[in-house]
């Protein structure tokens, strides 16, 4: 130790190691501080993210190849069966859609009578998931569309069965989204049966959302479907979120112990849909007005 103080002849000594480490540590803390408070560092993040993008594509290639291979090696018989199944499914869906069309028209008429604001038809786009859970500490995923495709922060992501999550960071070519099951995520929902409003919190488990804000006498039952209420402004309303699976009313407590199972297969999705609910410039006004209405 004494010798190392002024030892330039020792080849093993790395000059100013401690100082360099301290400076870098300070720099890291500064970066984290800036990153946590605001989005000042998005340009830096995007630049490095773009540099890493080819690597992500290469890493993802074997999985894609496997999917492609298993698709193209299916037997003719299997394909015919699948085709028949899809046709019958499509028939069913179209029949339902006809009803939906008339209902939508009726809804629009009724809303017009009530002098309510017109609902915009949602625009959707399919996005492929590039990495599930890139960040181990969060329930997140990376999708293959970015700000170049019109994706914006806070945009809703759904799959065929329900709400998946929302975009938290947009890059030029990819975006990162947080799932509704992340412990840091909260989603304004309402019970489809009676319009009871509450908030669904993520728990860190894929199969469970918590609804801690419901009073003991709240009208909620096992099997109730929760849909987005659109109150937060981030999500368009009316998308299914979860089905209530336990309602535990403990008399001494003020709030019931309610949890729900997400409708979307959060840990199995491969493709998701991004939803543009309204013309982007109207977005904020909409949210505010909706909030006043209800």
């Amino acid at each position: 130790m004494v010798a190392s103080r002024n030892n330039t002849s020792n080849p093993a000594r790395i000059p100013a190691l401690g100082l360099r480490t301290l400076v870098l540590m300070f720099l890291s803390i500064l970066l984290m501080f800036l990153d946590n408070r605001d989005n000042h560092l998005d340009t830096v993040r995007n630049a490095i993210g773009t540099a890493v993008y080819p690597l992500r594509v290469i890493v993802d290639a074997p999985v894609r190849l496997w999917v492609w291979a298993s698709e193209s090696s299916q037997s003719r018989n299997d394909l015919q069966l699948e085709n028949a199944r899809l046709k019958s499914e499509q028939l069913l869906t179209r029949a339902r859609l006809q009803r939906l069309n008339s209902l939508e028209a009726e809804n629009a008429r009724l809303r017009a009578m009530l002098d309510a604001r017109e609902q915009f038809e949602d625009r959707v786009r399919v996005a492929e998931i590039m990495a599930v859970d890139a960040n181990l500490f969060r329930h997140s995923l990376v999708i293959d569309v970015g700000s170049g495709d019109g994706v914006y922060d806070g945009q809703a992501i759904v799959d065929a069965d329900g709400v998946v999550g929302q975009v938290i960071k947009t890059g030029p070519m990819t975006s990162e989204a947080i799932l509704i099951s992340d412990p840091g995520h909260a989603l304004p929902v309402e019970v489809n049966r009676n319009g009871l409003r509450t908030i669904a919190y993520g728990t860190g488990e894929f199969g469970r959302l918590d609804l801690p804000g419901l009073a003991n006498n709240a009208d909620i039952e096992v099997g109730d479907l929760l849909v987005t209420s659109g109150l937060g402004g981030a999500f368009p309303n009316g998308y299914p979120v979860a089905v209530v699976d336990t309602v535990n009313r403990i008399p001494q407590r003020a709030f019931a112990d309610v949890s729900a199972t997400p409708s979307a297969a959060l840990d199995q999705v491969r493709e998701v849909m991004l939803v543009w609910s309204a013309p982007p410039d109207d977005d904020v006004d909409d949210a505010a007005l909706d909030g006043d209405d209800e």
Binding site: S28, L31, M32, D35, V52, R56, L136, R138, K169
Partner: peptide
Amino acid sequence: VSHGTLLGQYAL
């Protein structure tokens, strides 16, 4: 950046 964590976390 590739993990999407706080910028500087893994670096530190």
